[in-house]
Each structure stands twice: as structure tokens, then as C-alpha cells.
Design a protein around this nucleic acid. Sequence first.
DNA 1: AAACAATGCAACCGCACAAAG
DNA 2: TCTTTGTGCGGTTGCATTGTT
Length: 347
Amino acid sequence: MGRAPCCEKVGLKRGRWTAEEDQILTNYIQANGEGSWRSLPKNAGLLRCGKSCRLRWINYLRSDLKRGNISAEEEEIIVKLHASLGNRWSMIAEHLPGRTDNEIKNYWNSHLSRKIYSFRRTTEFASPKMAVIDFFKAQAAANKRRGGRMSRNKNISKIPAKVPKSSEQMKEIDGGNAAVAMPSTPNLEKEALSSTIPWPDLSTLEEVIETLDMPSPRPGSCQDVEVNNEGMEMMCLDDIIVDANGNSSPDHNESERGTITTRKCDNNDGILPIDNLGSSSWENEFEWDWEWDNAINGGNEVCGQEKNTYSWLWDNNESGEGDCDNGIGFEMDTNEKHNAIVNWLLS
DNA sequence: AAACAATGCAACCGCACAAAG
DNA sequence: TCTTTGTGCGGTTGCATTGTT
């Protein structure tokens, strides 16, 4: 049984706040201070629920709130913190002065979640090839979009023209094999896909598919992936970064270069994915998380417990020498990829 | 110009938790 | 110890806005 409602809802006003209500609330709090939200509306003469007053004050009226768009620096912080803390918006907000948890949550849901390449790979994928084919199918579906407003975020680029649009073209791409049991790709993911990676020329696709004879699974590779709490494997920012910073350096061995790394950390290892978070953020005995610094720094073993590497998306061969094809058919040298991804992430 | 549909954000809701009685 | 109250948090919803057809 839930608790009683915070206030009598009968006769209370709901919906958007008027300027007059804002003024009343502001005046009252300036005179009497925050707190006692339950009694505040009555005392202030507002026909609002106490919780509504609190929310309005915290999220909108407070004088120390920062106005304007989230900066690139703030965005980077959000992404990093989210990678470690998950949806703990209030904790994330603590690191962003002037920003509210609600604002960050909204920003995440509407901007960042579509930037983060959320790549669904379920057991229905018999091979990485199918996953990549799903990538194209998703793009084709996204391309069918009819009306609708484009994102207000100018940083999200539009879909390039050369995208398979018909089922015939898709057959051309996948030989008809991809028509079965392909999980649908949510809109966010479709947009993420379209906004992150330049499209290869369609004429190269057959060749692309041919090149997708992926290396046999390495120990701990994509064949035994960890599944997040939504039942899908997420391919996150960190994954991309570690690839981008793999640098193809001869100093990096095959298991490090171009890999995607997850770590299993316990709360005793004293190592946090990002600095200055405080060990209190780890509440469970085990948490799976993307290791940002590890990714940035080229995949050093930090936790020493478990490490999964998923390199197929980036590599298309085992040699790991020289510039690598990212497995979906566009040749970019590592620096180009690095720059493109980092620029995009920070844009 | 109208209809449609995606987007973004303010606001709401239910739950958890801590403090007070 | 139990109940009540106050507060905070994260998920979700509603709707104004706006781009596309």
C-alpha cells in the first residue's frame, strides 16, 4: 500500500505555472526560505500541491540555475558520469553546478541517448554480419521517415542520401538472409546510427558483406557478451573511444587494439571509472560498467578481474596491421576515425 | 496551408527513505 | 517499534513547438 498523497488534490491547479504563480512562489521563498513544502502553498496563497511548488522552485525559479544550452564540457561530463552512475540524475547534477537533475535527465533522454550508439545485438543475431545488416535495415527504415520535426540539435547530421531504401536493395545487400527475425531498431537507435557514422557508397555494400567474414570468436568476445538490465547489449560511447584511441599502435597487441572493453569491478578494488566520484557510488557487490578511463588510456588492465573484448565491429581481420576497415566498409585511417568520433562526441 | 508526426521540456506520479512523533 | 509526515528521486506523461510532406 502506498503512502497517502502529499496533499489534497481537489481544487488544486495543475499544469503549467503562470508568471503570477512564479512570482508568488519566489516572493514567498525569498521571504521565508525553502522547505515546509507541504504547508507552503497554503501559506503562500497558491493553489498548488507542495510537491509541485518544490519542483517548480528547484527546477526553474532558483536563482542559481544556469540558463542556456548545455555546453560541450557539460555534455562530456554528463556522458562520463552516466557511464558510471547510470540514471542517478541527482548525483550527476551534483557535478554540474546550476543544472538540475530534471534538466540533465531530459537532456539525456532527448539528446545524448540518441548520440550514444546503442547497438542492439541479441542472440537472434547468428553472426556479426547479421548485426551489420540490421544496421543497414535500420537505416533504411529510418530513411522512410515521413513528416516530423528534425532534431533541434543542429549537431545531429542528416542522413546521407545513399541508403538502401527498398527491399530489393536490401536483398542486394544481404542476399535475402537478413529478412528473418531481425529485431526492430528503436527510433533512437536509428537516429543514433544515422548521426554517427558516414554512409558508405551503396555500390560497396556487396563487397562489404563479403568482407564480413568475421574472425572466429576470441575468448570472451562478442559471443558471450554481457547483457545489460534492459536485456540488450549496449554499445556505448566508451566502446567507440577505446577503438578510437587504440591508435593502431604497434605497441598495442591485438587484444588491446580496437577492442571494446568491459570490466567487472567490485566495490573493494577502490578504482572508479572516473575521478572524483567517491567510492560511495558503488553500492552493490558487483556492478558492470564501462570503464571510461580504461578506454581512454588504451585498455590497460585496471580491475584485473574480467575483461571482454569485442573487436569485430572495428576490425575486419585478425592481422591488426595498418589502417583497418571498420567492418562496414569504409576505409578510414585510425586518426581519421579518432578525430571524427571525438569531434562528434564533443560537438 | 493543412495535416502529420517527432521533438523537447515542464510537470506529474509513485515509490523509497529518513526523521519525527 | 510502529505510524505518520516530509522530502527527494527517477520514470513517465502531456502538450506546445516545429519540420516535413
